[in-house]
Design a protein around this nucleic acid. Structure first.
Lengths: 155, 155
DNA sequence: TGGCTGACTATGGTTTCCACAAGTTAGACT
DNA sequence: AGTCTAACTTGTGGAAACCATAGTCAGCCA
């Protein structure tokens, strides 16, 4: 079964509750504020524990716990690094799954900038300087707006 | 000042903590599990209180509280409706700001489907049937990948 | 007028999130 | 051997999220 996103899915009984909920599972991993803010900072290039703590503005205890969960979830990895004259330390870096969270971070950034007071950073393309925004496109290259989006039950 | 997303922003001291945080403000509104799941259901077409409660799998008390917050935040509105032979009721519908949350919902859906066990629904374009995914594009039409994304401090 | 139903509201308890403060550990350096 | 520091860990407590149950309220209908 498939249904248009704006259709009356909610009034149909043939759709089981858990049928369309990868969102639930995503929120298990990144459903709290600290996790997302930590990810944002890693996208921005922060990898060291103390930098993350300072930039996110969270306590060390919470940062340590969240970072461990993100590593366990396969979103971050700890990579050893060594500055000259320093002992070996570990920096947090994005895994492939972590890099794939960029749309989530960008979507929140974009929405927050547009719809909350305070504005936000401009996102631009390094090559041409034009503003960047997220859009849904199909494999044929069409921009897909909300009314043309079809949700299929399973693939 | 501007910086590439993968640059060493975190090692620069000229960036204030609150400078790049519309994400924070977005999370004030939709930073909890219930709010996002409610929004997902409204996108799917559910508007009635009892349908939302049932489909999200949350208690009435929590749903009522979250819905009120979402209305206060300007993401949802209550619209009166009347089925024949029934009394007047209110359905929840997305405002413009609410519709703009579609990328957030899609990004989570897409990530959860790809990186958590259980898969997820296929998203396709109603007009051509091709699979849909989110991508960052600049105004000139280029696909912008992570390394080519520049974050400016203010606009 | 009284019952029924959808849409809440109220109360109490558990769990999760987070802050604050203090302690611990590993390894480079003296 | 002892110091210093980044990176944690542990403990306590408060606030927020969430659940379960029960109760309220408004209006349509018999």
């Amino acid at each position: 079964m498939t249904v248009r996103l704006t259709g009356r899915l909610a009034q149909r009984d043939d759709v089981a509750l858990g049928d369309l909920c990868p969102i639930d599972r995503a929120l298990q991993v990144i459903g709290n504020r600290t996790a997302l803010l930590l990810l944002r900072e890693v996208f921005y290039g922060a990898g060291r524990f103390d930098a993350l703590v300072k930039r996110v503005g969270v306590t060390e205890a919470v940062a340590a716990q969240r970072l461990r969960q993100l590593v366990d979830a396969g979103v971050l990895t700890k990579e050893p690094y060594r500055e000259p004259g320093q002992r070996t330390r570990h920096a947090y870096a994005l895994t492939d799954a972590g890099h794939d969270l960029l749309p989530v971070v960008l979507a929140l950034l974009q929405w927050g900038a547009a719809h909350t007071i305070g504005g936000g950073p401009a996102l631009t393309h390094a090559d041409c300087g034009e503003p960047v925004q997220l859009e849904a496109r199909c494999a044929a290259g069409h921009v897909v707006d909300e009314d043309d989006l079809v949700v299929g039950s399973r693939r």
